[in-house]
C-alpha cells in the first residue's frame, strides 16, 4: 500500500459516524491494508475508552447535581423545561418575600374593599403585577442584572418568561383575594384585564424610561383614570373593560414589533452611576 487512511476518517469509522461514499472506500482500504487495520484497532480502543470515561463523567455529574428547590420542581412537574424553570426561579418578584408582600397587599386591599367600596380592590389589584414586573427588571433589585445584560440569551424571551410567571403569580393571588368581594358578581373580576393591559404598557415603555419609571408612569395614569371615572365606575363596566382590552391589545402588538429593542444595550442611564 502506498497510501493510508487519515486519522480523522479512522476515528469516524470507529465511532460509526463515517457516511457513504467515504465509508465504502474506507472499508475497501481496510480490507486490503493491515497497517490501517492495526491503527483502527488502536483508535477504536481509545475512542471506546473516552466514550466510557465521558459516560461515567456525565453520570457522575447527573448524580451529583443538587436537587432543584420546591418551586422549580413544581414547574418541572407541570411540564416547564428545567432550564426555563431555573430562569424563572431567579425572578426577584417570585421570591417568597415578594410573593408574601403581594399576597398581604391583595388581602388587605380586599378587606378594605369589603368595608368601604369594591373599587378600592379593583383599582389596586392591577398595580400588583405592575410593581412585580418592574421589580423583576430594575437594576437595583435583580442582583444579576449586569451579568444577564451581557449574556447572549434573548432579552425579549427572558422578559416575556418573567412577565408571564409574575402575572400568573399575582393573578392567582388577586383571584383568591377577590373572593372577599364575591358578592359583587362579575364586577369583582374587573381588575383582571387592566392588570394585563397595565403590565404590557409598562413593559412597552421600559426601554425608553427604564423599568421603574415606566411602572410609575403607567401606575399614575391608571390611578388618574380610575379617579376621573370613580363616579360611574366606567372602567369596570363592560364598555370600559372592552376599552381596556383594546388598549392592552394595541400595546401587545407594539411590544411585539419592538422586540428587537430589548436586545440592545441596557438602559444606559440606569448604569451610569459607577465610573
Amino acid at each position: 500500500m502506498t497510501w493510508h487512511l487519515l486519522d480523522e476518517d479512522l476515528r469516524a469509522y470507529a465511532t460509526r459516524t463515517l457516511a457513504a461514499p467515504g465509508l465504502w472506500s474506507t472499508e475497501a482500504h481496510l480490507a486490503a491494508c493491515g497497517e490501517c487495520r492495526e491503527r483502527l484497532a488502536a483508535a477504536a480502543t481509545i475512542d471506546f475508552k473516552s466514550a466510557i470515561d465521558g459516560g461515567w463523567a456525565r453520570l457522575d455529574v447527573a448524580l451529583d447535581a443538587p436537587r432543584p428547590g420546591p418551586v422549580e420542581r413544581l414547574m418541572i412537574t407541570v411540564g416547564v423545561p428545567d432550564h426555563t424553570a431555573r430562569l424563572l426561579a431567579a425572578t426577584p418578584a417570585l421570591r417568597l418575600s415578594w410573593l408574601v408582600a403581594i399576597a398581604v397587599t391583595a388581602a388587605l386591599t380586599a378587606t378594605v374593599a369589603v368595608f368601604t367600596d369594591p373599587v378600592v380592590f379593583l383599582a389596586v389589584a392591577p398595580l400588583l403585577p405592575l410593581v412585580a414586573v418592574a421589580m423583576s427588571f430594575a437594576p437595583g433589585i435583580d442582583p444579576t442584572y449586569e451579568i444577564a445584560v451581557v449574556a447572549p440569551i434573548r432579552s425579549f424571551r427572558l422578559l416575556l418568561l418573567r412577565c408571564l410567571a409574575v402575572l400568573s403569580a399575582t393573578t392567582a393571588l388577586s383571584a383568591v383575594a377577590s373572593l372577599f368581594i364575591v358578592e359583587y358578581g362579575l364586577r369583582a373580576t374587573g381588575w383582571f384585564l387592566p392588570s394585563l393591559a397595565l403590565t404590557v404598557l409598562s413593559v412597552l415603555l421600559s426601554p425608553r424610561l427604564g423599568a421603574g419609571p415606566a411602572a410609575v408612569v403607567v401606575g399614575v395614569g391608571w390611578a388618574a383614570l380610575v379617579a376621573a371615572t370613580v363616579g360611574d365606575l366606567l372602567v369596570f363596566t363592560v364598555a370600559g373593560q372592552v376599552g381596556v382590552g383594546i388598549v392592552g391589545g394595541i400595546a401587545a402588538v407594539a411590544l411585539s414589533r419592538q422586540r428587537g429593542t430589548y436586545d440592545r444595550y441596557h438602559v444606559p442611564n440606569l448604569m451610569r452611576r459607577a465610573s
Partner: peptide, 23 residues
C-alpha cells in the same frame, strides 16, 4: 457581582450557563 442568595453555588452557575444559551 450579584447573586440570588437563595440559590446554591451550583444553581447560580447553572443559571448563568442558561443565560449563556447552554440549555
Amino acid at each position: 457581582p450579584g447573586f440570588h442568595p437563595s440559590f446554591t453555588a451550583f444553581e447560580f452557575v447553572d443559571y448563568v450557563a442558561i443565560l449563556k444559551e447552554l440549555t
